[in-house]
Structures are given as structure tokens and as C-alpha cells.
């Protein structure tokens, strides 16, 4: 099982621009989704006139399927400056991959719970770290795309853009840097020092 929890409200709001397109994934039954909290927040944003559209669907981790759905909302997405995704880490990464020139934000943190992990997608992976970093990394997961799961930037090991550990794998932080550059968001690299919290899974398991 996975569990997704809403990030702190201030964290989400500080990541948003003035026009937001919302995507909700109510996909696999293996994922517990914070539906009530998500609805409450979306109502609030809607009342403030910030929402350009809402797409509620399932299995957004399937890129072909998601692409068709997004095409149907092209105008609303164009109108927005931020796409806010309520899903597990894989879903957010899939959206960020398809909307490379949009600021795509994760509204949730994804934690692990014991048991079946749901459908495994091919292209993206979420390590269920419980502190989703995708808003600081242009929607590319540093936990799974970097061999050392670094959260403060590239190590000195990349050679020709490839990872020191696996020369057939692109350096995750090189990808993150290029994506942020493409988005004009290199300033997020000046965010405060990030520290992993390995106690998050304990916390969730005890709840």
C-alpha cells in the first residue's frame, strides 16, 4: 500500500501562481487518497477564483491515457500558470513529463505502507520518501532518478551527463538542472538546505 497525505497548506499555497489547473488521481485501490482534505482545499482555491479547471480521473501514471485526457483540457491548462497534482509521486512525475513547459506541483507527500504497491509504471518511480521533493526539482524525483538519492544537487560524479554509478543512466541531477532551466525556475536551487527525514514512515505506520 501507499499512502498520500496533503502537504501543509502553506507549503502548497506558496508553490502556486495565480491560475491553477488541478488534477486529481483516484486511481489504484492500493493508494489511500486524502479526498476530503483535497476537496476542501480545491473549494477554497475555487472560491478565490484561482482554478481554471479540474480533471479528476484515474491511473494518471499511464502516460498514453493521461495524454488523451490532458488534450481535452488544453485550453484550461494553457490558461493556468501552475498545474497542481493530487496523486502519488509517480502521477506527478508523469504529468511533469507531459507538460514540460508548465510548472507542475505536487500537493501530496507519498509514504510507504506494507503490502502490495499497486501498478508499477515503467517510466517513473517513486521511492515513497514521505517528503515529496518534486516541487523543488521540476517534477523529476531525486530519490529514484539519482543513484545516491541526493536532495541538494548534483554530486561531482557525472561524466558526459551520465551517472558515475551507471554510465547507461542519465544523471538525475543533470536532468533536474536542465528541466528547471527550461522552466525558467533555476531559482529554486537556492532553496534552504534539504534534510531527509527517515522517521516519516514510522509516523504514518503508527497512525
Amino acid at each position: 500500500m501507499l499512502i498520500t497525505e496533503l502537504k501543509a497548506k502553506e507549503t502548497i499555497l506558496s508553490a502556486l501562481g495565480s491560475k491553477v489547473f488541478v488534477i486529481n488521481c483516484h486511481g489504484c485501490k492500493e493508494i489511500r487518497f486524502p479526498e476530503q482534505e483535497a476537496n476542501a482545499l480545491q473549494k477554497e482555491l475555487s472560491a478565490a477564483g484561482k482554478i481554471t479547471g479540474i480533471l479528476t480521473t484515474d491511473y494518471i501514471c499511464n502516460p498514453e491515457n493521461l495524454k488523451l485526457q490532458l488534450d481535452g483540457y488544453a485550453a484550461q491548462i494553457r490558461e493556468s500558470d501552475t498545474v497542481l497534482v493530487f496523486s502519488c509521486g509517480v502521477g506527478v512525475q508523469t504529468v511533469a513529463q507531459l507538460l514540460q513547459d508548465k510548472k507542475v506541483c505536487a500537493a501530496c507527500d507519498t509514504y510507504a505502507l506494507p503490502g502490495y504497491q499497486g501498478v508499477t509504471p515503467l517510466e517513473h518511480d517513486c521511492g515513497q520518501c514521505g517528503q515529496c521533493y518534486l516541487n523543488l526539482t521540476g517534477g523529476i524525483c531525486p530519490i529514484t532518478a539519482c543513484s545516491k538519492s541526493l536532495v541538494n544537487g548534483q554530486c561531482g560524479g557525472a561524466k558526459n551527463g551520465m551517472c558515475e554509478v551507471d554510465p547507461t543512466m542519465q544523471c538525475g541531477w543533470e536532468r533536474i538542472y536542465q528541466r528547471l532551466k527550461q522552466l525558467g525556475r533555476l531559482d529554486v536551487l537556492k532553496c534552504p538546505v534539504q534534510l531527509r527525514d527517515y522517521a516519516t514512515d514510522e509516523r504514518v505506520n503508527k497512525e
Binding site: N152, G153, Q154, G156, A158, K159, N160, Y177, L186, V193
Partner: peptide, 30 residues
């Protein structure tokens, strides 16, 4: 440390800036 001749020199400079922000007082290069 920092790698001045890396092909990813811009990413290296960004990391260098983070190190300065975090308290680095001097650098040795590759």
C-alpha cells in the same frame, strides 16, 4: 569541492552556490 571543467559546469556552479549558502568557506577543485 567543485569541478570547474565538468561538462555540467552550470549545475556545478549551482551546487557551489548551495555549498556557500550552507557554510563553505573555501573550495578545492577537481
Amino acid at each position: 569541492v567543485v569541478s570547474p571543467c565538468s561538462e555540467s559546469v552550470d549545475a556545478q556552479l549551482a551546487k557551489m552556490e548551495r555549498k556557500v549558502m550552507a557554510g563553505a568557506e573555501y573550495f578545492q577543485t577537481q
